[in-house]
Simulated assay, not measured.
Amino acid sequence: MGDICTILFQVNINLDLDSFRDKLVNKDFFPGAVTINTLENQISQITTSFEDTIEIRYGSLVYKFNQNNMGFIRINRGWIDFLTFPPTTEITREICLEAMEYFKSKEAIYLSDMYSFDYFYSKLSWSDLKKSLARRLGPPPQSIGEIYKEYEEHIEAAGYFIEIR
């Protein structure tokens, strides 16, 4: 499975890109983001692109922002790895919680990139996004580990998890 772990989150402050970019490389503000790039020997270079969305690449992390006050993080980790390998789960959640704190988010949603791009580029509100996910994938589980199910002939990993701060 080639799915990548992604995170959608609310942006509840005015987006100041210069301030965010400056703080992103600061271990005091974003220790998880700095750590993952250090572990992967990524160059601490930030590039920004503007289209219908704003994209900031920081090493192996990609942060995107749309006009609906939604943020998106793509982490260079597989979805199955996120669900089953505790060190990956921990660093991913750390990066998510850092972004949630910085952008004053109350909720974030972890899901496979198989679904996240559709939701990020849609015009759905946050509450409509959660309703759509519930219709599509069922209610969110109580823990990340509940998403991954291994059977004799196949595995299932379709699902999402809502992080509440």
Rank of each mutant, 00 (worst) to 15 (best):
G2H: 07
I4R: 12
T6C: 11
L8R: 10
L15Y: 09
D18N: 13
R21V: 15
V25H: 06
V25F: 09
V25W: 04
F30E: 00
F30D: 01
A33H: 09
A33K: 05
T35R: 13
S49E: 15
E51P: 03
R57V: 11
G59F: 04
L61G: 02
V62P: 00
K64A: 10
N66R: 03
N76T: 09
R77C: 07
I80W: 13
I80K: 13
I80G: 03
F85D: 03
P87E: 10
P87K: 03
T89S: 07
E90A: 15
I91H: 07
I95F: 04
C96A: 11
L97R: 15
L97Y: 14
E98Y: 01
A99K: 07
M100F: 00
M100K: 06
E101L: 13
K104Q: 14
K104A: 13
S105H: 03
K106L: 13
Y110Q: 09
L111C: 06
S112L: 04
S116R: 06
D118L: 08
D118S: 13
Y121R: 13
S122E: 06
D128T: 10
D128H: 10
K130N: 05
K130Q: 14
K131P: 02
L137Q: 04
P141A: 06
S143T: 08
I144R: 05
I144L: 08
G145N: 12
I147G: 01
I147P: 03
Y151I: 02
E152R: 10
G159I: 07
I162S: 01
